[in-house]
Design a protein around this nucleic acid. Structure first.
Lengths: 197, 197
DNA sequence: TTAGAATGCGGAGCGCTGTTCCGTTTTGTC
DNA sequence: GACAAAACGGAACAGCGCTCCGCATTCTAA
Protein backbone atom coordinates (compact mmCIF):
# COMPACT_ATOMS: atom_id res chain seq x y z
CA UNK A 1 0.00 0.00 0.00
CA UNK A 2 1.48 3.25 -1.10
CA UNK A 3 1.14 6.36 0.99
CA UNK A 4 -1.25 8.57 -0.91
CA UNK A 5 -0.49 12.01 0.31
CA UNK A 6 1.60 12.79 3.33
CA UNK A 7 1.66 16.23 4.87
CA UNK A 8 4.02 18.40 2.89
CA UNK A 9 6.07 16.63 0.35
CA UNK A 10 6.96 13.45 -1.47
CA UNK A 11 4.15 13.13 -3.95
CA UNK A 12 4.44 9.84 -5.84
CA UNK A 13 6.18 11.24 -8.89
CA UNK A 14 3.37 11.06 -11.43
CA UNK A 15 4.02 12.78 -14.71
CA UNK A 16 7.09 14.59 -13.40
CA UNK A 17 9.79 15.43 -15.81
CA UNK A 18 12.96 13.42 -15.64
CA UNK A 19 15.18 16.35 -14.67
CA UNK A 20 12.78 17.29 -11.88
CA UNK A 21 13.00 13.82 -10.37
CA UNK A 22 16.75 13.84 -10.71
CA UNK A 23 17.06 17.20 -9.03
CA UNK A 24 14.74 16.19 -6.25
CA UNK A 25 16.96 13.27 -5.38
CA UNK A 26 20.12 15.35 -5.70
CA UNK A 27 18.62 17.89 -3.34
CA UNK A 28 17.67 15.29 -0.76
CA UNK A 29 21.19 13.88 -0.77
CA UNK A 30 22.76 17.31 -0.53
CA UNK A 31 20.40 18.36 2.25
CA UNK A 32 21.17 15.23 4.25
CA UNK A 33 24.87 15.96 4.07
CA UNK A 34 24.46 19.61 4.97
CA UNK A 35 22.10 18.83 7.85
CA UNK A 36 24.52 16.54 9.59
CA UNK A 37 27.36 18.96 8.95
CA UNK A 38 25.67 22.23 9.91
CA UNK A 39 22.35 21.31 11.48
CA UNK A 40 18.86 21.83 10.16
CA UNK A 41 19.28 25.59 10.27
CA UNK A 42 21.86 25.57 7.51
CA UNK A 43 21.29 28.28 4.88
CA UNK A 44 19.16 27.16 1.97
CA UNK A 45 21.76 28.63 -0.34
CA UNK A 46 24.29 26.18 0.98
CA UNK A 47 22.08 23.25 0.17
CA UNK A 48 21.35 24.60 -3.28
CA UNK A 49 25.04 25.15 -3.89
CA UNK A 50 26.01 21.68 -2.76
CA UNK A 51 23.35 20.20 -4.99
CA UNK A 52 24.52 22.39 -7.85
CA UNK A 53 21.10 23.90 -8.46
CA UNK A 54 19.52 27.32 -8.10
CA UNK A 55 17.54 28.66 -5.19
CA UNK A 56 14.32 28.50 -7.14
CA UNK A 57 14.71 24.79 -7.61
CA UNK A 58 14.95 24.19 -3.91
CA UNK A 59 11.83 26.20 -3.18
CA UNK A 60 9.89 24.60 -6.00
CA UNK A 61 10.50 21.13 -4.65
CA UNK A 62 10.29 22.04 -0.97
CA UNK A 63 8.25 25.17 -0.38
CA UNK A 64 9.27 25.37 3.26
CA UNK A 65 12.38 24.25 5.06
CA UNK A 66 10.24 21.90 7.09
CA UNK A 67 9.22 20.08 3.92
CA UNK A 68 12.84 19.44 3.14
CA UNK A 69 13.63 18.27 6.64
CA UNK A 70 10.62 16.02 6.67
CA UNK A 71 11.56 14.45 3.38
CA UNK A 72 15.11 13.83 4.52
CA UNK A 73 14.15 12.22 7.79
CA UNK A 74 11.05 10.47 6.69
CA UNK A 75 12.69 7.09 6.59
CA UNK A 76 14.04 7.33 10.10
CA UNK A 77 10.73 8.47 11.47
CA UNK A 78 9.07 5.60 9.69
CA UNK A 79 11.49 3.15 11.27
CA UNK A 80 10.85 4.59 14.69
CA UNK A 81 7.11 4.37 14.20
CA UNK A 82 7.30 0.77 13.11
CA UNK A 83 9.48 -0.17 16.05
CA UNK A 84 6.67 0.62 18.49
CA UNK A 85 4.38 -2.36 17.98
CA UNK A 86 7.24 -4.79 17.55
CA UNK A 87 8.84 -3.66 20.79
CA UNK A 88 5.53 -4.11 22.52
CA UNK A 89 5.53 -7.69 21.34
CA UNK A 90 9.15 -8.49 22.02
CA UNK A 91 10.03 -6.58 25.18
CA UNK A 92 9.35 -8.09 28.56
CA UNK A 93 6.65 -5.63 29.59
CA UNK A 94 4.82 -2.64 28.17
CA UNK A 95 6.87 -0.29 30.29
CA UNK A 96 10.10 -1.92 29.11
CA UNK A 97 8.86 -1.48 25.56
CA UNK A 98 8.12 2.16 26.24
CA UNK A 99 11.57 2.70 27.65
CA UNK A 100 13.26 1.14 24.69
CA UNK A 101 11.08 3.01 22.26
CA UNK A 102 11.85 6.34 23.91
CA UNK A 103 15.47 5.33 23.68
CA UNK A 104 15.14 4.96 19.93
CA UNK A 105 13.40 8.28 19.76
CA UNK A 106 16.22 9.93 21.68
CA UNK A 107 18.78 8.24 19.45
CA UNK A 108 17.07 9.73 16.49
CA UNK A 109 16.84 13.22 17.93
CA UNK A 110 20.32 13.28 19.33
CA UNK A 111 22.05 12.19 16.17
CA UNK A 112 20.30 14.86 14.17
CA UNK A 113 21.93 18.07 15.13
CA UNK A 114 19.32 20.66 15.98
CA UNK A 115 16.33 18.61 15.04
CA UNK A 116 14.94 18.55 18.54
CA UNK A 117 14.92 22.30 18.50
CA UNK A 118 13.14 22.33 15.20
CA UNK A 119 10.48 20.07 16.64
CA UNK A 120 9.11 22.67 18.94
CA UNK A 121 9.79 26.00 17.28
CA UNK A 122 6.51 26.64 15.57
CA UNK A 123 7.64 30.13 14.87
CA UNK A 124 9.92 29.62 11.91
CA UNK A 125 7.58 27.60 9.77
CA UNK A 126 8.41 24.24 11.23
CA UNK A 127 4.77 23.63 11.80
CA UNK A 128 4.63 21.09 9.00
CA UNK A 129 7.51 19.14 10.45
CA UNK A 130 5.94 19.22 13.86
CA UNK A 131 2.71 18.01 12.41
CA UNK A 132 4.28 15.16 10.52
CA UNK A 133 6.18 13.88 13.50
CA UNK A 134 3.06 14.03 15.58
CA UNK A 135 0.87 12.35 13.00
CA UNK A 136 3.23 9.49 12.63
CA UNK A 137 4.63 8.96 16.11
CA UNK A 138 1.87 10.09 18.42
CA UNK A 139 -0.34 7.05 17.87
CA UNK A 140 2.62 4.76 18.48
CA UNK A 141 3.55 6.50 21.69
CA UNK A 142 -0.05 6.57 22.81
CA UNK A 143 -0.33 2.84 22.28
CA UNK A 144 2.77 2.19 24.35
CA UNK A 145 1.61 4.50 27.12
CA UNK A 146 -1.80 2.92 27.28
CA UNK A 147 -0.39 -0.57 27.36
CA UNK A 148 1.87 0.38 30.24
CA UNK A 149 -0.98 2.10 32.03
CA UNK A 150 -3.26 -0.90 31.55
CA UNK A 151 -0.56 -3.10 33.00
CA UNK A 152 -0.45 -0.78 36.02
CA UNK A 153 3.19 -0.02 35.44
CA UNK A 154 2.90 3.75 35.17
CA UNK A 155 0.82 6.44 36.76
CA UNK A 156 -2.04 7.50 34.51
CA UNK A 157 -2.63 11.07 33.40
CA UNK A 158 0.29 11.63 31.08
CA UNK A 159 -0.48 12.23 27.44
CA UNK A 160 1.78 11.03 24.65
CA UNK A 161 1.94 14.51 23.18
CA UNK A 162 3.31 15.99 26.34
CA UNK A 163 5.77 13.17 26.88
CA UNK A 164 7.14 13.30 23.36
CA UNK A 165 7.46 17.01 23.40
CA UNK A 166 9.17 16.91 26.74
CA UNK A 167 11.64 14.32 25.54
CA UNK A 168 12.21 16.33 22.42
CA UNK A 169 12.91 19.42 24.47
CA UNK A 170 15.33 17.58 26.72
CA UNK A 171 17.34 16.62 23.67
CA UNK A 172 17.97 20.21 22.71
CA UNK A 173 21.48 21.53 22.80
CA UNK A 174 23.61 18.55 23.74
CA UNK A 175 26.69 19.91 21.99
CA UNK A 176 29.05 17.24 23.16
CA UNK A 177 28.86 18.83 26.60
CA UNK A 178 29.62 15.97 28.99
CA UNK A 179 27.82 17.85 31.73
CA UNK A 180 24.53 17.59 29.90
CA UNK A 181 23.36 14.18 28.86
CA UNK A 182 19.75 14.16 27.67
CA UNK A 183 19.51 10.44 28.30
CA UNK A 184 20.04 10.80 32.01
CA UNK A 185 17.22 13.31 32.24
CA UNK A 186 14.91 11.27 30.06
CA UNK A 187 15.65 8.40 32.39
CA UNK A 188 14.61 10.53 35.35
CA UNK A 189 11.44 11.47 33.52
CA UNK A 190 10.56 7.84 32.94
CA UNK A 191 11.33 6.98 36.54
CA UNK A 192 8.92 9.67 37.56
CA UNK A 193 6.37 8.17 35.24
CA UNK A 194 6.67 4.75 36.80
CA UNK A 195 4.27 3.94 39.55
CA UNK A 196 5.63 4.68 42.99
CA UNK A 197 5.58 1.59 45.13
CA UNK B 1 27.22 47.13 50.17
CA UNK B 2 27.23 47.98 46.50
CA UNK B 3 27.80 45.32 43.86
CA UNK B 4 31.19 46.06 42.38
CA UNK B 5 31.09 44.57 38.92
CA UNK B 6 28.57 42.07 37.71
CA UNK B 7 28.94 40.04 34.52
CA UNK B 8 27.76 42.00 31.54
CA UNK B 9 26.18 45.28 32.40
CA UNK B 10 25.06 47.62 35.12
CA UNK B 11 28.27 49.35 36.04
CA UNK B 12 27.72 51.73 38.94
CA UNK B 13 27.41 54.85 36.82
CA UNK B 14 30.68 56.53 37.67
CA UNK B 15 31.62 59.46 35.54
CA UNK B 16 28.93 58.71 32.96
CA UNK B 17 27.40 61.60 31.20
CA UNK B 18 23.88 62.53 32.14
CA UNK B 19 22.41 61.78 28.73
CA UNK B 20 24.05 58.36 28.74
CA UNK B 21 22.44 57.45 32.03
CA UNK B 22 19.11 58.73 30.82
CA UNK B 23 19.31 56.72 27.62
CA UNK B 24 20.35 53.59 29.47
CA UNK B 25 17.21 53.72 31.58
CA UNK B 26 15.02 54.58 28.62
CA UNK B 27 16.44 51.58 26.81
CA UNK B 28 15.80 49.23 29.72
CA UNK B 29 12.19 50.36 29.93
CA UNK B 30 11.68 50.07 26.21
CA UNK B 31 13.31 46.65 26.10
CA UNK B 32 11.13 45.38 28.93
CA UNK B 33 8.02 46.45 27.05
CA UNK B 34 9.17 44.98 23.76
CA UNK B 35 10.19 41.71 25.40
CA UNK B 36 6.74 41.09 26.80
CA UNK B 37 5.14 42.10 23.51
CA UNK B 38 7.40 40.30 21.04
CA UNK B 39 9.66 38.05 23.09
CA UNK B 40 13.35 38.28 23.75
CA UNK B 41 14.04 37.68 20.06
CA UNK B 42 12.53 40.99 19.07
CA UNK B 43 14.56 42.97 16.54
CA UNK B 44 17.02 45.37 18.13
CA UNK B 45 15.76 48.01 15.74
CA UNK B 46 12.36 47.75 17.35
CA UNK B 47 13.77 48.38 20.79
CA UNK B 48 15.82 51.29 19.55
CA UNK B 49 12.78 52.74 17.84
CA UNK B 50 10.58 52.43 20.90
CA UNK B 51 13.24 54.07 23.04
CA UNK B 52 13.60 56.80 20.45
CA UNK B 53 17.35 56.28 20.05
CA UNK B 54 19.61 55.01 17.29
CA UNK B 55 20.96 51.52 16.83
CA UNK B 56 24.42 52.56 17.85
CA UNK B 57 23.16 53.66 21.23
CA UNK B 58 21.69 50.28 21.95
CA UNK B 59 24.88 48.46 21.07
CA UNK B 60 27.04 50.89 23.00
CA UNK B 61 25.13 50.29 26.20
CA UNK B 62 24.51 46.58 25.64
CA UNK B 63 27.09 45.05 23.30
CA UNK B 64 25.16 41.82 22.97
CA UNK B 65 21.48 41.09 23.17
CA UNK B 66 22.18 38.92 26.18
CA UNK B 67 23.51 41.90 28.08
CA UNK B 68 20.24 43.66 27.51
CA UNK B 69 18.19 40.68 28.60
CA UNK B 70 20.31 40.21 31.69
CA UNK B 71 19.98 43.85 32.63
CA UNK B 72 16.21 43.74 32.20
CA UNK B 73 15.71 40.62 34.30
CA UNK B 74 18.55 41.03 36.77
CA UNK B 75 16.33 41.75 39.73
CA UNK B 76 14.19 38.69 39.21
CA UNK B 77 17.16 36.42 38.75
CA UNK B 78 18.64 37.85 41.90
CA UNK B 79 15.44 37.21 43.78
CA UNK B 80 15.41 33.62 42.60
CA UNK B 81 18.98 33.14 43.70
CA UNK B 82 18.28 34.57 47.12
CA UNK B 83 15.18 32.44 47.54
CA UNK B 84 17.30 29.29 47.63
CA UNK B 85 18.82 29.54 51.10
CA UNK B 86 15.68 30.95 52.65
CA UNK B 87 13.57 28.13 51.25
CA UNK B 88 16.06 25.68 52.65
CA UNK B 89 15.48 27.21 56.04
CA UNK B 90 11.72 27.56 55.85
CA UNK B 91 10.51 24.55 53.90
CA UNK B 92 9.80 21.32 55.65
CA UNK B 93 12.65 19.35 54.11
CA UNK B 94 15.53 19.93 51.69
CA UNK B 95 13.64 18.15 48.94
CA UNK B 96 10.56 20.28 49.57
CA UNK B 97 12.79 23.33 49.33
CA UNK B 98 14.24 22.07 46.06
CA UNK B 99 10.77 21.52 44.66
CA UNK B 100 9.63 24.98 45.56
CA UNK B 101 12.78 26.54 44.23
CA UNK B 102 12.47 24.75 40.91
CA UNK B 103 8.91 25.99 40.87
CA UNK B 104 10.13 29.56 41.17
CA UNK B 105 12.61 28.96 38.41
CA UNK B 106 9.94 27.55 36.13
CA UNK B 107 7.64 30.45 36.91
CA UNK B 108 10.32 32.86 35.88
CA UNK B 109 11.11 31.13 32.61
CA UNK B 110 7.53 30.45 31.64
CA UNK B 111 6.35 34.01 32.07
CA UNK B 112 9.13 35.44 29.92
CA UNK B 113 8.25 34.81 26.34
CA UNK B 114 11.05 32.91 24.61
CA UNK B 115 13.54 33.25 27.44
CA UNK B 116 13.88 29.52 28.00
CA UNK B 117 14.69 29.01 24.37
CA UNK B 118 17.23 31.79 24.41
CA UNK B 119 18.96 30.21 27.37
CA UNK B 120 20.15 27.22 25.41
CA UNK B 121 20.69 28.70 21.95
CA UNK B 122 24.41 29.26 21.74
CA UNK B 123 24.05 30.50 18.20
CA UNK B 124 23.18 34.16 18.63
CA UNK B 125 24.63 36.66 21.04
CA UNK B 126 22.94 34.78 23.84
CA UNK B 127 26.07 33.14 25.19
CA UNK B 128 26.47 35.68 27.95
CA UNK B 129 22.90 35.06 29.05
CA UNK B 130 23.61 31.39 29.55
CA UNK B 131 26.72 32.27 31.50
CA UNK B 132 25.00 34.73 33.78
CA UNK B 133 22.24 32.36 34.73
CA UNK B 134 24.74 29.65 35.46
CA UNK B 135 27.01 31.86 37.50
CA UNK B 136 24.18 33.12 39.61
CA UNK B 137 21.87 30.16 39.99
CA UNK B 138 24.08 27.11 39.74
CA UNK B 139 25.57 27.44 43.23
CA UNK B 140 22.10 27.84 44.69
CA UNK B 141 20.79 24.78 42.93
CA UNK B 142 23.85 22.80 43.91
CA UNK B 143 23.32 23.68 47.53
CA UNK B 144 19.71 22.53 47.41
CA UNK B 145 20.60 19.31 45.64
CA UNK B 146 23.34 18.48 48.09
CA UNK B 147 21.13 19.17 51.06
CA UNK B 148 18.47 16.86 49.68
CA UNK B 149 21.05 14.21 48.89
CA UNK B 150 22.55 14.45 52.37
CA UNK B 151 19.09 14.01 53.81
CA UNK B 152 18.73 10.85 51.73
CA UNK B 153 15.70 12.25 49.94
CA UNK B 154 17.00 11.98 46.40
CA UNK B 155 19.17 9.61 44.48
CA UNK B 156 22.70 10.90 44.14
CA UNK B 157 24.48 11.42 40.84
CA UNK B 158 22.54 14.30 39.39
CA UNK B 159 24.41 17.54 38.87
CA UNK B 160 22.78 20.94 39.27
CA UNK B 161 23.94 21.93 35.81
CA UNK B 162 22.16 19.07 34.17
CA UNK B 163 19.02 19.52 36.22
CA UNK B 164 18.76 23.24 35.55
CA UNK B 165 19.37 22.84 31.89
CA UNK B 166 16.84 20.05 31.70
CA UNK B 167 14.23 22.13 33.47
CA UNK B 168 15.05 25.07 31.25
CA UNK B 169 14.63 22.95 28.16
CA UNK B 170 11.30 21.62 29.34
CA UNK B 171 10.08 25.19 29.59
CA UNK B 172 10.70 25.89 25.93
CA UNK B 173 7.82 26.62 23.65
CA UNK B 174 4.75 26.42 25.84
CA UNK B 175 2.72 28.72 23.61
CA UNK B 176 -0.43 28.53 25.59
CA UNK B 177 -0.84 24.99 24.33
CA UNK B 178 -2.94 23.28 26.97
CA UNK B 179 -1.57 19.94 25.82
CA UNK B 180 1.93 20.88 26.88
CA UNK B 181 2.43 21.99 30.44
CA UNK B 182 6.09 22.25 31.43
CA UNK B 183 5.16 21.99 35.08
CA UNK B 184 3.75 18.52 34.75
CA UNK B 185 6.94 17.29 33.13
CA UNK B 186 9.16 19.04 35.64
CA UNK B 187 7.11 17.33 38.29
CA UNK B 188 7.78 13.97 36.68
CA UNK B 189 11.46 14.79 36.57
CA UNK B 190 11.53 15.57 40.26
CA UNK B 191 9.59 12.42 41.06
CA UNK B 192 12.23 10.49 39.20
CA UNK B 193 14.86 12.26 41.21
CA UNK B 194 13.28 11.25 44.49
CA UNK B 195 14.54 8.08 46.05
CA UNK B 196 12.47 5.05 45.16
CA UNK B 197 11.24 3.28 48.25
C1' DT C 1 31.85 82.24 30.53
C1' DT C 2 33.76 79.93 27.25
C1' DA C 3 36.80 77.18 24.53
C1' DG C 4 38.41 72.55 23.97
C1' DA C 5 38.33 67.79 24.83
C1' DA C 6 35.86 63.84 25.84
C1' DT C 7 31.98 61.35 25.61
C1' DG C 8 27.84 59.88 23.49
C1' DC C 9 24.56 59.85 19.57
C1' DG C 10 22.27 58.58 15.16
C1' DG C 11 21.57 56.02 11.27
C1' DA C 12 23.57 54.83 6.80
C1' DG C 13 25.76 50.83 5.26
C1' DC C 14 27.58 46.05 5.00
C1' DG C 15 26.92 41.22 5.07
C1' DC C 16 24.00 37.41 5.68
C1' DT C 17 19.70 35.38 5.60
C1' DG C 18 14.83 33.68 3.53
C1' DT C 19 11.78 34.13 -0.28
C1' DT C 20 9.85 35.59 -4.73
C1' DC C 21 9.72 36.29 -9.60
C1' DC C 22 10.53 35.89 -14.34
C1' DG C 23 13.41 35.31 -18.60
C1' DT C 24 15.67 31.24 -20.25
C1' DT C 25 16.46 26.38 -20.91
C1' DT C 26 15.13 21.63 -20.96
C1' DT C 27 11.84 18.04 -21.70
C1' DG C 28 8.07 15.55 -23.56
C1' DT C 29 4.77 15.13 -27.40
C1' DC C 30 2.70 15.30 -31.90
C1' DG D 1 11.53 19.24 -36.01
C1' DA D 2 8.20 22.35 -33.70
C1' DC D 3 5.65 23.72 -30.02
C1' DA D 4 3.83 24.05 -25.25
C1' DA D 5 4.47 22.88 -20.78
C1' DA D 6 7.43 22.17 -17.14
C1' DA D 7 11.44 23.17 -14.71
C1' DC D 8 15.58 25.83 -14.07
C1' DG D 9 18.71 29.54 -12.38
C1' DG D 10 19.86 33.39 -10.02
C1' DA D 11 18.94 38.35 -9.74
C1' DA D 12 16.33 41.01 -6.74
C1' DC D 13 13.84 42.36 -2.61
C1' DA D 14 13.12 42.46 2.32
C1' DG D 15 14.39 41.81 7.21
C1' DC D 16 17.85 41.13 10.37
C1' DG D 17 22.39 41.87 13.33
C1' DC D 18 26.13 44.62 13.81
C1' DT D 19 29.76 48.33 12.69
C1' DC D 20 31.49 52.71 11.83
C1' DC D 21 32.12 57.52 11.73
C1' DG D 22 30.67 62.39 11.21
C1' DC D 23 28.10 65.27 14.27
C1' DA D 24 25.99 66.79 18.73
C1' DT D 25 26.05 67.10 23.62
C1' DT D 26 28.13 67.35 27.94
C1' DC D 27 31.82 68.10 30.98
C1' DT D 28 35.96 70.57 32.58
C1' DA D 29 39.22 73.82 33.48
C1' DA D 30 40.97 78.25 32.81
Amino acid sequence: MEPIASPSGEPPARGRRADALRNRQTLLDAAAEVFVASGVDAPIREIAARAGVGMGTVYRHFPTRADLVVAVYRHQVEACAEAGPSLLASAGSPFAALRRWIDLFVDFLVTKHGLAGALQSDSSGFAALHEYFLDRLLPVCTQLLEAAADAGEIRPGTEAYELMRGVGNLCIGHDGDPRYDPRRLVDLLLRGLAHPA
